[in-house]
Amino acid sequence: MTGAEPTGFLYPFLDRAERDEAGLLAALAASGRAKAEASATITAEALAAAAPLLADAAATIAQRIRAGGRVLTIGNGGSATDAELAAASFARPPTGRSVPARALVDDPAVLTALANDIGVEAVFARQVAAAAHPSDVLVAFSTSGNSPNLLAAIAQAHRQGLYTLGMAGHDGGAMAQCAELDCCLVVRAQSVHRVQEAQDGLLDALRHAVQAALEDLAEEAAEPKGAP
């Protein structure tokens, strides 16, 4: 495994490990517990660091939703499934109002047509060009922050007037330096797995904040105006 994830405790019994099933199971359980604890710590730190940015982003997203916008989500690999999860969490939340959202990752005909005819760097940017309205919001999921097709889509969305939000890991990569990205939430961890788990927590926080901001906007609109 990677050097960042210590597994040295497995080695003292390596000589006899090949018969020590109970020892392996105990080491696996301990490793799982340690990783879950690391995940919780990294998630809590990412939420704390992102809190001010999240509040501003949620207010902006809510205004755009109120104006008829939608949340469009993108990502590659496991982050593509996180983009699907994000769209579902907005559109079909377990509680609270639903937010119009769709993932641009789940149609193999569209993805393979664009990848084959133009190139993989175009698979999201071309969909944004075709589908996005100026009031929409683009949410990009990455762990490296360096995926060219995400950066291309962010640039395209910015040109069309969308609000752009990115989630990245490590040091944020190119997304952290991207002028076209309105909000970049960085999970400062090295493990791709721990980054995605923290992004899962950030997504929950973002969705709840957008739902709350939409409730506030609805209440403001319902209040009588101009009363003496």
Partner: peptide, 11 residues
Amino acid sequence: SFSGRAVLGYH
């Protein structure tokens, strides 16, 4: 949690 922490589970 929308994912039910399933992401952590399968990781």
